[in-house]
């Protein structure tokens, strides 16, 4: 059983392809996180809006994003929207679905961040003569940032895991690319092993740098 001989040379040769997959993974992760965060910043305000339609819209979004599998969300984007004549490329479908998913989770993270800043901080700032804008930028947001920074980092890594689902609609991000390469070379273990190392390397780099930023600049 253990007479399998490892062959790393073939992996070494296809390393540029693996990196290409890793770049696509990173790109999807970063874009889906940025888009998710922008949407979440709006949803967290709509969540408390006087308009009942906006409130319910937000509620529905969060509920679907958090209570259905990300895989299903990708299928809806890729196949489901086709029923309405909206045909997305696999890249856009994955990006859209993960951004949708991110927005749901990030809204909840932001909500927690805002509720952790007491109403008194707002009064103290206004009491000193700061206007609304100044109060948010200099007093409220920095404190929200402090509470949401590490959960957001985790969400970012979670989003990266999510992008690997792109393989099922033919996207060659890191997992998809690795699967393609091993099928060509019949070296599954070697390829998946290296892919795992690349994922770990990216995750750890993100965690380390965010830990550093948290300590040095945010005093967390």
């Amino acid at each position: 059983m253990l007479d399998y001989t490892f062959q790393w040379k073939v992996v070494w040769k296809r390393l540029p392809d693996l990196f290409e997959g890793a770049i696509l993974t990173l790109e999807l992760t970063i874009l889906s996180s940025i888009i998710g965060l922008l949407i979440a910043s709006i949803l967290v305000i709509w969540q408390k809006n006087d308009n009942i339609f906006l409130r319910n819209f937000t509620k529905t979004w969060i509920s679907i994003a958090r209570n259905t599998p990300a895989l299903l969300q990708i299928y809806i984007a890729y196949f489901g929207l086709g029923s309405f004549g909206i045909h997305l490329s696999s890249y856009v479908a994955v990006l859209g679905a993960i951004a949708f998913n991110n927005a749901g989770y990030m809204t909840e993270i932001l909500r927690g961040g805002f509720s952790s800043v007491s109403k008194n901080q707002n009064q103290a700032a206004k009491g000193l003569g700061l206007n609304n804008f100044q109060t948010y930028v200099y007093v409220i947001y920095p404190q929200v940032l402090k509470t949401v920074f590490l959960p957001m980092t985790n969400q970012f890594i979670w989003a990266m895991m999510g992008t690997s689902l792109g393989i099922i609609i033919g996207l060659q991000e890191l997992t998809g690319m690795t699967t393609f390469l091993q099928s060509q070379t019949f070296r599954p273990f070697e390829f998946y092993f290296i892919a795992a190392l690349i994922y770990i390397f990216i995750s750890k780099s993100i965690l380390l740098s965010s830990g550093f930023i948290a300590k040095k600049y945010l005093r967390i």
């Binding site: 008194n120 901080q121 103290a124 700032a125 206004k126 009491g127 003569g129 404190q143 402090k146």
Partner: peptide, 28 residues
């Protein structure tokens, strides 16, 4: 906002800004 320059207020719960040093709490 203009009016509040004339009126200093201090609260029971201090409400200092936790993310700023003492100096920056005052200078903000």
């Amino acid at each position: 906002n203009e009016l509040r320059k004339k009126l200093g207020i201090v609260f029971q719960q201090f409400n200092t800004f936790p993310h700023l040093t003492a100096l920056n709490n005052v200078s903000l």
